[in-house]
């Protein structure tokens, strides 16, 4: 059986949802896998919830739209409310419990609630909670190795923002090891 990860990442605009998705996609590409990344777009993006669909697979990818994700990263309450029920049984739900005032209701999934924003603030940059969650995502799912994820990060952080690289890596490691 081939291995296909279908990940939905969702949150408010500005939380780095799209970037997190791109990072995992890029890492998947470096790992030699088939990948697709599909964002929500248009007015939906303006101040509302943003989400992206990331597929990492050993096989050619059919539809880039995910109906039933194998993993969900929810960075705010509306995202958890919207996508919780769509996750496949046995799938993974990762939430930022600093920002979501309820627990995951599903009992047939692996639910991990991390105070990602609080961790990120403690480490010095609250806006990088997305990286904490991505770190945990790859540990739980094994989509790519930590090393490949870091390599991907180096490639997609723009040259003028290289000073953020170290901080991003710290956050990923925190999530991965946490």
């Amino acid at each position: 059986m081939n291995c296909t990860h279908e990940i939905v990442m969702a949150g408010f605009g500005g939380q780095g949802i799209m970037f997190a998705g791109k990072l995992v996609s890029y890492a998947g590409m470096l790992a030699g896998k088939e990948i697709s990344w599909l964002p929500s777009y248009g007015p939906e993006m303006r101040g509302g919830t943003a989400n992206c669909h990331v597929i990492v697979s050993d096989e050619q990818i059919g539809s880039p739209i995910i109906t039933n994700p194998t993993a969900l990263i929810a960075m705010n309450r509306p995202s958890l409310d919207k996508f919780e029920d769509t996750v496949v049984p046995g799938g993974l739900i990762l939430t930022d419990s600093s920002l979501i005032n309820r627990s995951v209701k599903r009992k047939d999934v692996v639910a991990i609630e991390i105070p990602a924003t609080q961790h990120a603030i403690d480490l010095g940059e609250g806006k990088l909670a997305n990286m904490v969650l991505v770190g945990r995502l790859i540990r739980e799912t094994g989509i790519v190795s930590l090393d490949i994820l870091k390599e991907a990060l180096k490639k997609i952080v723009p040259a003028r923002k290289q000073e953020l690289l170290e901080m991003n890596i710290k956050m990923i490691e925190l999530g991965y090891n946490g």
Partner: peptide
């Protein structure tokens, strides 16, 4: 279509 335009692939 919008999907092809917006999606990223290698």
């Amino acid at each position: 279509d919008g999907m092809l335009g917006q999606m990223m692939e290698p």
